[in-house]
């Protein structure tokens, strides 16, 4: 009898719910945005600068289910001329494929303006200026395995000596392999912890944090890097980080992210990281 009641209840509720949900209405006429050049940069531990040059696409050309590799191939600009100018010197960044342009011998000097220029036959030219903040090393750093009843992740303990003045930091943790393919930088599996020195300006700062939502096991090798970054890049990353945990389009105000790329999108940043490798125990 109870089974029959359950069955009938499921049937009635299913019919009710199915009847309830109306078909969504289509939407055809939204103004499209002309594609723009998008710039983003990464610094590989060891001093190599990699710039990813892509183009923006319409909202209907890609989504969160899209394959990242396929997506990059679709949007990558592979025929651009990319160069970095510092002072009177201009260094071309060779095409590494799949929209990547890089230079492994870039000797970043802090507090100097580096101008990135990207020229695309199809989309025109954009440029961006960034400075590498002075190198701030770890004072101490340790990464160990953290096991709870439910999770196995990494915990990082570190300290730094903060210079006087406004400073912003990015601490990245990523799986590390000696045979790391540069193209896999598109899938770096980095965890980023952002920090502002408003609470400890000019002092020693110590903290520990767990690498959230990442699983590690004993014997995994991780690279922990820390870099002092510009305020603008910190705000760019923080905006993305904060919205990652928002409850969706209906729970927060729309935001068009800031960019330091004149005529384009994305963010060109330079930083000199301090990198350490750990085997998790």
């Amino acid at each position: 009898m109870k089974t029959l009641v359950n069955f009938l209840l499921v049937v009635v509720i299913s019919i009710f719910v199915a009847a309830c949900i109306p078909d969504p209405l289509p939407l055809d006429d939204i103004a499209k945005l002309q594609p723009k050049i998008v710039v983003s940069s990464q610094l590989v531990p060891g001093g190599a600068l990699v710039v990813l040059v892509t183009k923006s696409v319409s909202a209907l050309e890609a989504g969160w289910g899209s394959d990242p590799e396929e997506l990059i191939r679709k949007v990558a600009i592979t025929d651009a001329e990319v160069s970095i100018t510092v002072g009177d010197a201009t260094v071309p960044l060779p095409n590494l494929g799949t929209g990547l342009y890089g230079n492994i011998n870039l000797d970043l000097q802090p507090n100097r303006d580096y101008m990135l220029k990207v020229k695309s036959p199809e989309l025109g030219e954009v440029h961006s200026i960034a400075q590498a903040k002075p190198f701030i090393p770890f004072r101490t750093v340790q990464a160990t395995l953290y096991k709870s009843r439910f999770d196995s992740t990494a915990i990082v303990r570190y300290s730094l000596q903060d210079p006087v003045g406004g400073n912003w930091y990015m601490v990245n943790i990523q799986n590390f392999s000696q045979t790391q393919n540069i193209n896999s930088l598109l899938n770096p599996r980095i965890f980023t912890h952002l920090l502002s020195d408003s609470a400890f300006n000019g002092k020693i700062w110590e903290e520990e944090f767990k690498v959230l939502f990442r699983k590690y096991k004993q014997g995994d090798t991780v690279a922990v890097t820390m870099a002092s970054i510009s305020k603008e890049y910190y705000q760019f990353l923080k905006a993305r980080y904060d919205r990652r945990y928002s409850a969706g389009a209906f729970a927060s105000e729309p935001l068009n992210y800031a960019t330091n790329v004149v005529g384009g999108l994305g963010f060109f940043n330079l930083h000199v990281p301090d990198s350490r490798i750990f085997v998790l125990e």
């Binding site: 939407l27 939204i30 103004a31 499209k32 945005l33 594609p35 723009k36 998008v38 983003s40 990464q42 990813l52 892509t54 183009k55 923006s56 696409v57 319409s58 909202a59 890609a62 989504g63 969160w64 899209s66 990242p68 997506l71 990059i72 949007v75 990015m170 990245n172 930088l185 598109l186 899938n187 770096p188 599996r189 980095i190 965890f191 980023t192 939502f213 990353l237 993305r240 980080y241 990652r244 389009a249 729309p254 935001l255 068009n256 992210y257 999108l265 994305g266 963010f267």
Partner: peptide, 22 residues
């Protein structure tokens, strides 16, 4: 609505981020 989007490498969780343009 979102009318365009662009790709940047993800600062966390791996992969690439699709950044919306409203």
């Amino acid at each position: 609505p979102i009318i365009a989007q662009y790709v940047v490498p993800a600062p966390s969780f791996g992969g690439v981020d699709l950044i919306p343009i409203y």
